[in-house]
Design a protein around this nucleic acid. Sequence first.
RNA 1: GGGGGCGUGGUGUAGUGGCUAACAUGCGGCCCUGUCAAGGCCGAGAUCGCGGGUUCGAACCCCGUCGCUCCCGCCA
Length: 439
Amino acid sequence: MERTSIGDLRNHIDQTVKVQGWLHVLRDQKKIQFIVLRDRTGQVQITHWKPNDMPLAEMISELGTESALTVTGKVVDNPSVKLGGLEIQLESLVVENKAEIPLPFEPFGEIDNLPALDYRLDWRYMDLRRKQNLLLFQVQTTMEHALREFWVKNGFMEMHSPKLMGSPSESGAELFELAYFETKAYLAQSPQFYKQMAMAGGFEKVFEIGPVFRADPSFTSRHMTEFTSIDMEMSWVESEEDVMQNQEKMLQYAYQRVKDVHGEEIQEVFGFELEVPQVPFPRLTMGEAHALLKELKYEMPPEKSNDLDPGAERAIGQYIKEKYNHDFVYITDWPFAVRPFYHMKRGENGTRSFDLIAGGLEITTGAQREHRYDVLLEQAKEKGLTPEGISFYLDFFRYGCPPHGGYGMGLSRLLMVMLKLPNIRETVYLFRGPNRLQP
RNA sequence: GGGGGCGUGGUGUAGUGGCUAACAUGCGGCCCUGUCAAGGCCGAGAUCGCGGGUUCGAACCCCGUCGCUCCCGCCA
């Protein structure tokens, strides 16, 4: 017999069906047992009149909640059943995998009794059964799908760059080093160089959604040592403005799709209405941002006069929310002093670069890149890099590389902001941090 | 790497110098009932992270240590 989804049972009244799922609740009475079975699509009450099969009844009585079961029975309409107005009259029950008793914690217990996040991460697969997490990863799937759809519609090609690198790139710090046969290798901290290579390679527009690795011992609610980066790079741009316009339209597209598909359930499970952002997003230059912070009485440490700290980002995000009712804001015109060497300069000290702040959290850095070999070489030297170490990269710009720009965006940070969750560790399938390599 | 906070039954909390360490949830047993957040009664389960110290007396105060957590730095 084919499996019927619990959410689809209404279409099977008076039929005998097979359902499979987890034992959600067992109400075991003297003459009758009520089993609430749960699958991804919903819950259903299964009724067993014990005298019909006492040995089966005794076996059911022993079952621990969350056991994985296959059940067959007849679906009957019954308006007095609060759970969907129908029930299944039990005919057979197979225990596919019993749940040990007791459970490490109650995934469906009262929210106030939910264990601390770290303990739930130890039992992540149990935690994932909660509807919040199920929805979270359904949203992620829908969102990623929408991003790819947007890009493909707009002529982008998907790429997969290597995560093993032969030499430290970019900063040289914060890299994981590993043994590689007779030599050493490094885990990629970004696909930056390789997506730029695709520009030199004539692909014109590319994107990649893939893992990156950062060896930062960061203990915050928004950092991971391994995370999924959403990267894009496009050629023939006139400035970073082209990149921002593409990104804001893409985010609007993705938000709209998520709202269309999951808006109701987000309202139900997370308790708010997902807002699709208006374009263009508000924009502030770094100068304007600092003027605003002064107005908001947010004190920046003097040594960060040309930068923003997380508190400043939160303050700006809150102001933009109150003033424009917008969750996103671009901060543009960052000083070269706080940007990597490959960002194109604007004037002597500025750059054609931007950050995207969402819900007060930095989720993107982007820029028009420096594509002129001589200028790039100078900028690398200015940052104290030895050209020999990155010669493979500098070579990309020797034989006709178009002007280009792009950005990197953290998938889990975006999800965290979208669903208003406080900690990135619960917006990623499995968290990796300085003290967390398992499960 | 720097700073703050927290560690009490399986889980979540209360208790901040003098109790047999409390409550909720879960677990076990019994009773009741076509139940549905089921209900009622009973029970098991914690040497209060670990080590040292102060005190007549420490879950509680002090020192150390470990773990977790948040913030800063760094970034996405």
